[in-house]
Write a protein that binds this DNA or RNA. Structure first.
Length: 478
DNA sequence: GTTAGGG
DNA sequence: CCCTAAC
């Protein structure tokens, strides 16, 4: 292809890209946008985009949508059947209620997915479609249920067991805990926030980004009309943190616009995020003229350069939501009777949920220390705290440290009854503290009176009383 | 990846 | 609970 041809092609592509961009930034005009997209694609299939791409952007993974048999019927069905029916969950919750009100474009994609994919099955849905709302909590879970309506229940269960608890290889009991925690979980407000995610997500245009990417740089022969055998990596839904940061970002941008001199697109540094490992890279974004000054819309992914030579950066996939899911799943289990949900919002970075240590947890920890010794936090975690996911080995270590402190304090002031008054914040039974003290003498915490405390004293001591019998395997020979 | 220790 | 150095 010579250069002239290339240029003309790029030029036309550029125009069409602009059109699409207009579509993309108007997520609320539901019917129009969807049908327009299809007609657009119908017209330009030869050059610009292949069916797979379109379905990709609409959330259809294994698309039955052909251009010839264009889906007027399907789209009709979409309108007539009623999306809510399709998405109604097994437990009666319709997760799309909220979505459908607000989202429009993205949701239509999702709905098309359901309507057209007659051969949809769980594995496909989960692993390949990457349906943006899937990895969420309740809502997405419900969606998943809806997808599996026609599927044997065992299959669904096996799916969840296989995927959610893949690493831990839990029993079905865990699954029950898991699902229970979805049903009667405690944090309503977080749920609400999460439900709002797709709205913002749609408005940011994040999900729509690949559409334009597919549109621009590829040469015609790259567009496989059949779209067979091409797997796309799909952009994921941004995490809550991402949304927060983006919101802050957009607020900043809005402020800058209001301020007198807003001539240049200032490089707004991302608000200081303490945990850098969540690579939510928020790039400075240009506010498109279409965007309202609202949270989500202000941070739409800009259609930066329509020049095809400049490769557009893909928006970084936000970190997985699995962590959240797992945390939720564990929250229903065992001893989380008293669990405070203090969230300190320090500048956008969220602290981990502060969960008070229950007595049973402390007992387990002490047991573990008695069995494995101090410092074997991962062993203790794996064996005794495997069910409570939110307790990390570091947590165990910290707790043990605090217990030691407490036990020393107890030793100092020998007034046991006044425990409640002197230490109202620690309603630990004195028996436990006594045990901690005993263990502390036998298993001296590293560097904390390490050398002072009886190095010579071999731990054949009476600390066994708590859990009947140490198996004698790991006695710390000092 | 784990642990210790300071914050 | 977070962070980080040290291992």
């Amino acid at each position: 292809m010579n250069q002239v041809e290339e240029e003309s092609l790029y030029h036309s592509l550029e125009e069409e890209a602009i059109d699409v961009d207009c579509l993309l930034v108007e997520p609320r005009s539901d019917q129009v946008s969807v049908s327009s997209v299809w007609s657009f694609e119908e017209d330009n299939i030869g050059r610009c985009i292949k069916t797979e791409d379109a379905s990709y952007n609409l959330g259809v993974s294994d698309s039955n949508i052909n251009l010839e048999g264009v889906d007027t019927t399907k789209l009709h069905a979409l309108d007539e059947v009623g999306v809510e029916e399709n998405l109604l969950t097994a437990n009666g919750i319709s997760p799309c209620d909220d979505y459908l009100i607000d989202i429009g474009y993205v949701d239509h994609g999702a709905c098309i997915d359901y309507v057209t994919n007659e051969t949809l099955h769980v594995g496909n849905t989960s692993s390949e479609t990457g349906f943006p709302m899937f990895r969420n909590n309740k809502g997405s879970f419900g969606i998943q249920n809806s997808l599996t309506d026609s599927i044997p229940e065992s299959e669904c269960q096996s799916y969840f067991l296989g995927n959610i608890f893949r690493t831990n290889s839990k029993s079905v009991d865990k699954f029950e805990d898991f699902s229970k925690s979805f049903i009667d979980d405690e944090e309503e407000e977080e749920d609400n926030e999460q439900r709002n995610l797709p709205l913002q997500f749609a408005q940011t245009g994040m999900e729509l980004t690949p559409f334009r990417q597919d549109l621009i740089p590829n040469s015609p022969q790259d567009h496989n009309v059949n779209g067979s055998g091409i797997t796309h990596k799909r952009s994921r839904k941004p995490t809550k943190r991402y949304i927060d940061e983006s919101s802050n970002q957009s607020l900043k941008n809005c402020k800058k616009r209001k301020e007198p001199s807003s001539s240049s697109i200032s490089k707004v540094k991302t608000s200081t995020v303490r945990r850098v490992k969540s690579q939510n890279e928020v790039k400075p974004k240009e506010i498109t003229p279409f965007s309202e000054i609202s949270f989500g819309k202000a941070i739409q992914v800009p259609f930066i350069s329509q020049c095809p030579t400049e490769s557009q950066k893909t928006t970084p996939p936000p970190p997985t939501m699995m962590e959240n899911v797992i945390e939720r799943c564990s929250s229903g289990s065992e001893d989380d009777d008293s669990e405070t949900t203090m969230r300190s919002m320090t500048g956008g970075s969220q602290r981990k949920l502060h969960r008070l240590w229950t007595v049973s947890e402390v007992k387990k920890l002490i047991d573990g220390v008695a069995h494995f010794g101090v410092g074997k936090w991962t062993h203790i975690k794996k064996l005794l705290f495997s069910s409570s996911v939110h307790r990390t080995p570091v947590d165990l270590k910290d707790k043990w440290r605090n217990l030691l402190k407490a036990s020393r304090a107890l030793k100092g002031s020998r007034i046991e009854d006044e425990q409640k008054r002197s230490q109202p914040w620690r309603p630990l039974p004195k028996s436990i503290l006594c045990r901690v003290r005993e263990l502390a003498s036998t298993y001296p915490y590293p560097r904390e009176g390490n050398s002072k405390i009886l190095k010579s004293k071999y731990p054949n001591v009476p600390h066994v009383s708590f859990s009947e019998g140490i198996k004698g395997n790991k006695v710390p020979v000092v």
